[in-house]
Simulated assay, not measured.
Amino acid sequence: MKRTVLPFVLLLAAACGPRYGMRVPDKLVEKLPYESRIELLESENDLALAIDTVDEASNEVLRARDAIRRAKARESAAEEEENRAADTASREVAKLAIEEARARVTYLRAKQRLNVGLRDVEQLALRCAFARYELARLQSTRKAKVEGSEKLDVKKYEGQVSQCEAKVKEERAELAEDSAQEKTAREAWEVKKAALAKKTFDARASPYVENL
């Protein structure tokens, strides 16, 4: 396995505990011939991909958190601009900017709820990838007739994979409502953003509108 993945797998194994955390003893895998180790590469790559997916999902949560902070600052700035407006036109622009900023915050909060849910699902999916990897290790040791591998119950390893994957499917389905709310909030923000852009030079590149 790649050196960048192995330490993470060991940490994951320690953290998994009884939840999809059954492992094949390393001493059995160490006895595998080279050809059998090569057969494990696909499972190792799937595990590495799952790790990358969790990292990206976690980064998306952080990015959305920063975006919410900026949006709230823009809302405060727009409210101050409204108080300083010296004419009707300026006040109208400021009011539209406030509405756009508030709609942006609402959208970003909805997006963050979805982001957090997706991150949690990907973390569980990573456990499934770990379980599939351990099943592949067991199958390889059984195929190579490594002494001691016959004592491990393949059905139990297959069971933890199927149970984990069923749970991931269930949790992804539960995100449907969050996804719908995120879409509705984004559409509402797009309307406010378009209104502000139209009022300020009728341009998509309006200096008053910051695209995400």
Rank of each mutant, 00 (worst) to 15 (best):
A57F: 02
D87N: 12
A64E: 03
A136C: 09
V154G: 10
G159M: 06
D52M: 04
V93R: 15
G159V: 00
A144Y: 08
K143M: 02
N83S: 01
R69E: 14
E80R: 15
E56D: 15
A77N: 06
Y107N: 08
A48H: 05
V121R: 11
Q160W: 11
Q163Y: 13
E134H: 12
E56G: 10
A86Q: 03
A50N: 09
L47G: 07
I51G: 01
V161W: 10
I68M: 13
E75V: 00
T141C: 01
V116P: 00
L62W: 03
A103M: 06
D52P: 01
L96N: 07
N45Y: 06
Q112F: 05
A57H: 06
D120H: 10
A125T: 01
A136N: 04
D46F: 03
V93Q: 15
S162A: 10
L135Q: 07
R137Q: 15
A94C: 04
C128E: 12
R84K: 12
K156G: 11
V161S: 12
C128R: 03
S140H: 03
A144E: 12
V54F: 04
S90G: 15
Y133D: 12
A86E: 04
Y107G: 05
Y133A: 06
L41H: 03
S149C: 09
T141G: 00
E81S: 10
K145C: 05
A131L: 02
E92T: 07
S90N: 09
L124S: 05
L108D: 13
E79N: 00
D52W: 04
R127G: 04
L49I: 03
I98V: 11
Q139F: 01
A144D: 10
K111I: 00
A64G: 09
L114H: 06
I98N: 12
A101H: 08
L47M: 15
L49G: 00
L40H: 09
R69D: 14
A77D: 12
E80T: 07
N83R: 09
V105A: 15
S76V: 03
A144H: 07
A50K: 07
Q160T: 02
R132Y: 04
E56R: 14
V61M: 04
D55E: 15
E147R: 12
D52G: 05
A77C: 07
E79P: 01
R127S: 09
A57D: 10
L126M: 15
N45R: 12
E92Y: 08
E150R: 11
V61K: 08
A101R: 06
L138R: 08
V121L: 14
L108R: 14
E158W: 08
R113T: 09
E44Y: 14
R104Y: 07
A73V: 11
C128L: 14
A94W: 04
A48M: 06
K151Y: 04
V54W: 02
C128N: 07
R70A: 07
L62D: 15
S90Q: 15
E79V: 10
R127N: 06
A50H: 05
A103K: 13
L118P: 02
